[in-house]
Amino acid sequence: MSLVVRTLSDRLVDIVRDRILAGTVQGNTAIRQDALAAELGVSKIPLREALARLEQEGLVRSQANHGFFVRELTAEEAEDVYALRLKIEPEAVALAAERADDADRAQAVAALAALDRETEARDIHVGAANRAFHIALIRPAGRAITLQLLERLHVLSERYVSKHLEPIGRDRRANDEHAMLLEAWLARDTDRVMRDMHEHIGHTLVDLRRQLAAATQSAA
């Protein structure tokens, strides 16, 4: 039996990450370490350790003599993250479809059901549910390094997913695409899985290009 020991810094990483990904802390916002440490009942030392780890994940940035800031959404980052997903994710999901056992398949079905509930409720955690669904389609491939890379990319994608779903009706299209993906995945139709996943990621990137360009223009 393995024993997983989670430090205070580990737990703080999860808490702050969840707040950033849920959009409760806006991009380019300074993280008030004194107030946050007081709210969480911790000292600033483990909080700074957690923020340093989140900087390595790409969610926050540090500025000398000014502390940590939540990184803003940018077109350049979206291009980078989604381009990498396009290169890696379709093949990984197709391999997972071939290798998935009954438990994996049940987990994928449950993950989509959870995502549909979050989307219908327009919950702030829809990004996390989207990430969980995609990871459920990837994990059975059994490629640990690929999984780690895609988990990191999906963390970086999560705030962009929330941005992508802002326009009315966008969530219905995403739901339809997810349902088609799962259908092909469960049928072990690897060619269709790869095609549908590539189109799904590509559609999101095209939409984000427009949204982020419009946001940049309105801010100018």
Rank of each mutant, 00 (worst) to 15 (best):
D18L: 03
R6S: 12
Q26R: 15
D18T: 05
I31K: 02
I15H: 14
I31P: 01
R19P: 12
A30Q: 08
R6C: 10
V4W: 15
I15N: 07
Q33M: 04
R19L: 09
T24Y: 14
A22M: 13
L12T: 09
R19H: 09
V16D: 00
L21F: 13
D34G: 14
T7N: 06
V16W: 01
L8V: 12
I31R: 00
V16I: 00
V25S: 08
V4P: 03
R19G: 07
Q26C: 07
A30L: 11
V4M: 09
G27N: 07
A35W: 13
I31H: 01
Q26G: 12
Q33D: 05
L8P: 10
L8W: 06
A35G: 11
N28Q: 13
L21K: 02
R19A: 11
T7S: 10
S9C: 08
V13E: 02
R32Q: 06
D18K: 15
R32A: 06
V25H: 12
D34V: 13
L12Y: 02
R6K: 12
V25W: 10
I15K: 09
L12P: 03
I31C: 00
A22L: 08
A35P: 04
A22V: 08
I20R: 01
V16F: 00
V5M: 09
G23A: 00
R11F: 05
G27R: 04
I31A: 01
L21A: 08
R11Q: 10
D14S: 13
S9N: 05
V25A: 11
I15Q: 13
D14F: 14
I15L: 04
R19I: 07
G23P: 00
L8C: 04
G27S: 03
R11L: 14
Q26I: 10
D18G: 08
R32Y: 14
T7G: 10
Q33T: 09
A35M: 15
D34W: 13
L12E: 04
D10L: 01
A22S: 09
I20V: 00
I15M: 08
Q33N: 06
V16Q: 00
R17Y: 12
V13L: 03
T7F: 03
G27C: 02
